[in-house]
Amino acid sequence: MTTLPPSSEKKLGLVIDLDICVGCHACVVNCKEWNTGGYGAPLGDVDAYGDNPSGAWLNRIHTFEVTPEDAPNGGQAQIVHFPKSCLHCEDAPCVTVCPTGASYKRGEDGIVLVDEKKCIGCGLCAWACPYGAREMDPVENVMKKCTLCVDRIYNDNLPEIDRIPACVRTCPANARHFGDFADPSSNVSKMTAERGGMDLMPEMATRPVNKYLPPRPKTRPASERELAPALAPRTQEGLLGWIDRALEKLG
């Protein structure tokens, strides 16, 4: 059913900490690996080992440069690595445009999924998404998207520590967190409140569940310090101090 469910009791999603992400792409690779063997058809590639490889990925990392307004007066530009996957929006426009009912949002936990057996591969959902979260599989010709690793998070066959999305499990810097945004005491809700977690393109009125934590402000020392204080000459004690003083006297 491509009408949206009433607001769900659980709102599962991710917090992505832009202050911490180092842009290693481990989450990208582990996402591809898990989702090639898990839910639905494998994530296809075309010309994977050729000159022009291309394929479906559910998570991609862009890298942006931010130049502050006070850059001419010494303000420092920063590099921000920016992982992007489905935000599991509450008002998901990709769901309501679907003509077949293949694209749906689950009432029980808010996860947005594609029923690949119903998908006709028209691509309209990808057009409706402002974030570029959906990609057509080049081999199966059905729409692929982040499932929030629905086949991990409820999977009793996995050790409990692994019952989180693959991207979160693999992140070596701990920049990704998984939890329930409907619960104000959850880790993700607390982080969002403490760090000013933000929506991407809030003006598109999609009400994303996933939140991004902004990079912490760059700190600068109050006064100018020497670059390498160890290199500055210092009065020495002992033999070296005596040599220093003796040489100075020689002029």
Partner: peptide, 8 residues
């Protein structure tokens, strides 16, 4: 789109 516009 990136939420970073406030920084520069």
């Amino acid at each position: 789109a990136t939420g970073l516009g406030g920084l520069g």
